[in-house]
């Protein structure tokens, strides 16, 4: 039997079916976790924020436009949850998260290089101010346009560009 579409699951979850919402969580938890992990570079914190994101999604499910894809929407919700968190705690640049990223059975040398490489990027990202991190997340990973980011965050288009370009500049210097 074909698995139900996201739309069907959302409609059922709106009617209060916990199982349907559980299926949505199963489908999207890794995606949400990755947004949170990129934003915080702390695995444990990212898991907590993933949970918080799904609680927010559940409470706002009625506001989701069923004509649009679900994945990008929850990506944006997750990014906003992370921004709220980062602004509330004013995180210091994160230390190296020792837990390894998932790769598909790489050789020990490749695994080491990949781990080093991804850790460098994650640390560089985590060292950026939260606002810059957010626009980079929305532009590069959620693939939103400038105007979509501005509308989503409720800020001016010029602020989106300014944050994004400064964030990239800082990132370029840290990745040299």
């Amino acid at each position: 039997m074909a698995s139900p579409s996201d739309r069907d699951l959302i409609l059922r979850a709106r009617r209060g079916e916990m199982e349907a919402f559980g299926e949505l969580v199963l489908r999207f938890q890794n995606r949400v976790f990755n947004v949170c992990y990129r934003m915080t570079n702390e695995r444990r914190q990212a898991e907590d924020l993933t949970q918080e994101t799904f609680l927010r999604i559940h409470s706002r499910l009625d506001t989701f436009n069923l004509e649009r894809p679900f994945g990008p929407w929850i990506g944006r919700v997750a990014a906003n949850v992370c921004l709220n968190y980062l602004e509330s705690v004013k995180l210091k640049p994160s230390e190296l998260d020792e837990e390894r990223d998932a790769d598909e059975n790489p050789s020990p040398e490749t695994a080491y290089e990949n781990k080093e490489h991804s850790n460098r990027i994650r640390i560089a990202l985590a060292s950026l101010p939260a606002r810059y991190r957010l626009v980079i997340e929305l532009r590069h990973f959620q693939e939103m346009s400038y105007s979509e980011i501005a509308a989503n965050l409720g800020i001016q288009l010029s602020d989106v560009k300014s944050d994004l370009f400064r964030g990239r500049k800082m990132l370029a210097e840290k990745l040299k």
Binding site: F33, S118, I121, H140, F141, L171
Partner: peptide, 10 residues
């Protein structure tokens, strides 16, 4: 560099 960042697993 950003596009090469691998997806992490829960």
């Amino acid at each position: 560099q950003l596009s090469k960042l691998p997806e992490a697993s829960l």
